[in-house]
């Protein structure tokens, strides 16, 4: 036996995504954002997308390209303060935005990835964030029901992967990537380094290969991956 090889091309990986798809996109700021997969999505031009991402990147970076091209209909996010275009589109009614607490977004994705349907929490009770969500009493406490979040696809950025899709992330580039890889029907991964099976020690793997569907090895990194000089 040997573990299957999931490597593919950028074009073929993104080509699986149809119009109207819901897509989870890793990253918190620049670290962990799959810029090459996003650029290919921009090039192929799939429309009416729903994106789930912690933030909306910054002007000229990452999913800002997809907002500028009009490919995004809806965004589920925690904070878009660094992207004036996202705020403008939202205020103009051209982009539906659903805000979610950051750890609650992580937990909703985790629930989705783990086959759960919802969970109860006291986070946000009594605030605007809980309005319209089902509430439930438990042991004398009022709690809000947060639903699990899954998607058709996840776009993931890894530092190192083997050909089966065992992944390692670098520093704070891990962020939402592990939960998102779990919560999609089809997880598409770009990796800075591709290593042979067995090169990653089983104890050192952040995302186990069974969560990954297709893998793309990146060539030289574009400028988007570099430092943001403010």
């Amino acid at each position: 036996m040997s573990l299957p090889d999931k490597s593919t091309s950028l074009e073929e990986a993104i080509g699986r995504i149809p119009d109207g798809a819901r897509i989870l996109i890793g990253g918190f700021g620049v670290p962990g954002t799959p810029f090459a997969l996003i650029q290919e999505l921009l090039r192929q031009g799939q429309q009416s997308l729903t994106l789930v991402k912690n933030d909306a990147n910054e002007t000229g970076l990452g999913i800002d390209h997809l907002l500028a091209s009009g490919q995004v209909e809806r965004l589920i996010t925690t904070h878009i303060g660094l992207n004036p275009r996202a705020i403008e589109l939202m205020n103009a009614g051209k982009l539906q935005v659903e805000f979610c607490g950051q750890g609650i977004l992580a937990e909703r994705l985790h629930a989705g990835g783990a086959g759960l349907k919802a969970f109860l929490t006291d986070i946000g009770v009594g605030t605007e964030l809980a309005v319209g969500k089902p509430h439930q009493e438990l042991n004398g406490e009022t709690l809000v029901l947060e639903t699990a979040l899954r998607a058709d696809f996840a776009l993931i950025h890894a530092d190192t992967a083997d050909r089966f899709g065992n992944l390692r992330y670098a520093a704070t580039a891990r962020n939402f990537n592990p939960m998102m890889a779990m919560a999609a029907d089809c997880a598409l991964v770009e990796t800075e380094r591709m290593v042979e099976l067995g090169a990653l020690a089983p104890d050192d793997i952040h995302t186990p290969g069974p969560f990954v569907d297709h893998l793309v090895e990146l060539g030289p990194l574009s400028q988007e991956y570099g430092l943001v000089r403010r």
Partner: peptide, 30 residues
């Protein structure tokens, strides 16, 4: 380039620092 704080500043780590995902990060908080 892979190491920022939540405000986007490029930071260092102290000896003994740990990296983790957003799920773990907010498990620590909640």
């Amino acid at each position: 380039r892979n190491l920022i704080d939540a405000g986007g500043a490029y930071v260092s780590t102290l000896p003994g620092a740990a990296f983790f995902d957003s799920l773990t990060s907010f498990a620590l908080v909640r």
